[in-house]
Structure formats: C-alpha cells, structure tokens
Simulated assay, not measured.
Amino acid sequence: MSRTTTAPGHSAETASRAVSDPPGISAEPATAPLPDAPAVTPLRFGYGTNGLADLRLDDALALLADLGYDGVGLTLDHMHLDPLAPDLAARTERLARRLDELGLGVTVETGARYVLDPRRKHGPSLLDPDPDDRARRVDLLIRAVRVAADLGAHAVHCFSGITPPGTDPDTAWDRLAEALTPVLEAATTAGVPLAVEPEPGHLLATLADFDRLRRTLGDPEHLGLTLDIGHCQCLEPLSPADCIRAAAPWLRHVQIEDMRRGIHEHLPFGDGEIDFPPVLAALSAAGYQGLTVVELPRHSHAGPHFAEHSLPFLRSAEAAATGSPLLVPPHGDPSATPEGSTS
C-alpha cells in the first residue's frame, strides 16, 4: 500500500565535545523566512513510541489519538512494527489503515537500541569497521524508507553512530558518506526525506557536523535534518530558537523535550532549562509543517502519564508564542504524578 508522502518546506552523560560555529549554518540567526512560508504556521505535535514501549502499538496509537496528538514518531523495534519480522509489507499496510482511521500523521524513527544486535546498544552502526555490519544498518534504513513511503510518513530519521575505537575521524566520515549513499538513493526514489539527527557523543553531533555531511554529499535534495531541541540546549553554541532559524532550510523532523546545558539527559517539560515559547515561535515562523515529536525514551515506565501532560504544555507554550487559541485544556505540571503514585 502506498500513500502520498508530504515533505515539509539515555542515562545522563556529560557532553564534553567542544563546538564551533557551523561553517555553513551561520551563528547569526536567519532573518528571512523560507520562500512562501506563512508568518505563523500551526504546529503539529506527536509523541514517540520509544516513550511508550510498555504499550502495544495499537494501544499507544489509540492513546495518542484520544489525547489529541496530531501524529506519532514510530520507532521501528521488536515491539512496534518489527522491521526484521516476516510480512513487513502486510503489517505496514494494516498500520497505514489504522493511522488513517485515527487521523494520525507519522515519522519513522530508527533509534531502537537493540533491534539489530542484542548485545550492543545501537549496534552495528554506519561507522563499524566491518563492512558487513555497516551493510546491516544500511539495510535497516532502506527498510525504514520503504515503510515510511507506505505509511505516508513525512520523513525517516537516522543518526551516524559513535566513532569506533581506533578509527580516525576522516575514515569515519568516509564510511558515513559511503553508507548513506544507497539510503539516499532509496529515499529519492520513494520521495521521502532522510532526516539525519545530530546526536551528542556521535560522529555527527552538531549542526556544524550536519553541514559537513551535506556538503560532502553534494547537498542532495532528499537529505534533511532532524533537530532535537534538547540537544541544542545541551551543546550547540546557538540558543534552541536560533538553531531553528539557522537550520530552517534543511529542517525535516523535530524532536522535543527539556534538557540542561552540558548534560545529555532527556527531561519532562519544566524539569530542564529550555524556554519553550521562543522555540515554538521560531518553528512556526520558519513554516515548519512536519511533526514535532516528544522524545522521552527513558520515561516509558510512565509513558501514558507523560503523554497526557506533554501536549497541554506544548499547546500552552505555542499559544503564548504565537497568540493562537489554546486548543487543549492544560492538565497541570507534567511532573506532578511521580512513578508509584496512585493519583
């Protein structure tokens, strides 16, 4: 089943990597809007299934639809649309129908921890020394592109991986470019953007690194960016809002959560340091039309609670930023009900 794809316009660890101004993404915030972008674009919020790992996929989707989310960040994993199990095409077709029934948009995410290797988190990566191991990751990403096309997803997310011990940076960058080439070819054929995420601690960790990859590959049309707002707070030289303005031309997917400077720990809204109205105002002004997906994978034990409280927080922040009506009544402090509480 093929649907039309619409392309748009974790324990705590210290982020010790030094960063500099991105060479192709100016430290001066962009002032001109994207071509034909409206002054204010309503934002579409989703929630990641990696933060609902204790729920069956259909239960998770029904929950998000009931709460008023616009979509879902679908991590392909053993419990949620296993990309390696038999009959993937048939299972994807059933899921596409269910998403249509619920009125949910979707982004396909590929950050499952152990989907390829039960012993190595996120292994193998696109940077592994063994070409056969790299090929396994490439195969997963190409499968993800096909799933995304059949679901009508607005993007496929991926990341580089951590540089293996003993691998020099130039070799790692060469491996990354070589590995992503067939994935981009599949994405181009399918008409689905590939949105690479800068991830703290990975080879491609910053906006400057994304710009290096983009230039190395010749700025292909279907290569885009996944911007994680918390990662901007964690280690970018720009503020999260200025990161959005600087990266707007390549923005294809957004993940969002709270975070503190220098510490890569995904936090519920209100538990970190981010000022969210300017962030959402920047997304709206940039004309971003994809999903903005809540990313709380380490809070899956209380996923329904955080899903319930995250959307009102974001809608309130959006209303404060843009002057738009508050469409979802607030539910209070997103951290008000701790694990084990009976309230």
Rank of each mutant, 00 (worst) to 15 (best):
253 H>K: 03
255 Q>E: 03
256 I>K: 01
256 I>A: 02
256 I>R: 03
257 E>G: 06
257 E>T: 07
258 D>C: 03
258 D>G: 08
258 D>H: 04
258 D>Y: 03
259 M>F: 09
259 M>E: 13
259 M>T: 13
260 R>N: 12
261 R>G: 14
261 R>L: 01
262 G>K: 08
262 G>R: 07
263 I>N: 09
263 I>P: 10
263 I>G: 07
264 H>A: 14
265 E>Y: 15
265 E>W: 13
265 E>C: 12
267 L>C: 06
268 P>V: 01
269 F>Y: 04
269 F>K: 01
270 G>P: 05
270 G>M: 03
271 D>Q: 11
275 D>M: 00
275 D>T: 00
276 F>N: 00
277 P>H: 01
278 P>E: 00
278 P>L: 00
279 V>E: 01
280 L>K: 08
280 L>T: 11
281 A>F: 01
281 A>N: 04
282 A>P: 10
283 L>T: 09
283 L>M: 10
284 S>T: 10
284 S>K: 11
285 A>P: 13
285 A>F: 07
286 A>F: 03
288 Y>Q: 11
290 G>R: 11
291 L>F: 12
291 L>E: 14
292 T>F: 06
292 T>Y: 05
293 V>F: 08
296 L>K: 07
297 P>I: 03
297 P>D: 10
298 R>A: 14
298 R>D: 15
300 S>C: 05
300 S>D: 14
302 A>K: 10
303 G>Y: 04
303 G>T: 04
304 P>I: 06
307 A>E: 09
308 E>Q: 14
308 E>N: 07
308 E>C: 07
309 H>S: 09
310 S>R: 05
310 S>D: 04
310 S>T: 02
310 S>N: 06
311 L>Y: 06
311 L>H: 05
311 L>P: 12
312 P>N: 03
313 F>E: 06
313 F>D: 06
313 F>T: 01
313 F>R: 08
314 L>F: 05
315 R>N: 11
320 A>V: 05
320 A>M: 08
320 A>H: 04
321 A>W: 02
322 T>G: 12
322 T>A: 10
324 S>R: 14
326 L>A: 06
326 L>H: 02
327 L>D: 14
327 L>Y: 02
328 V>H: 08
329 P>C: 01
329 P>T: 02
330 P>E: 02
330 P>F: 00
332 G>Y: 08
333 D>A: 12
335 S>T: 15
335 S>M: 15
336 A>D: 15
336 A>W: 14
337 T>R: 14
338 P>M: 08
338 P>G: 10
338 P>N: 14
338 P>L: 09
339 E>L: 10
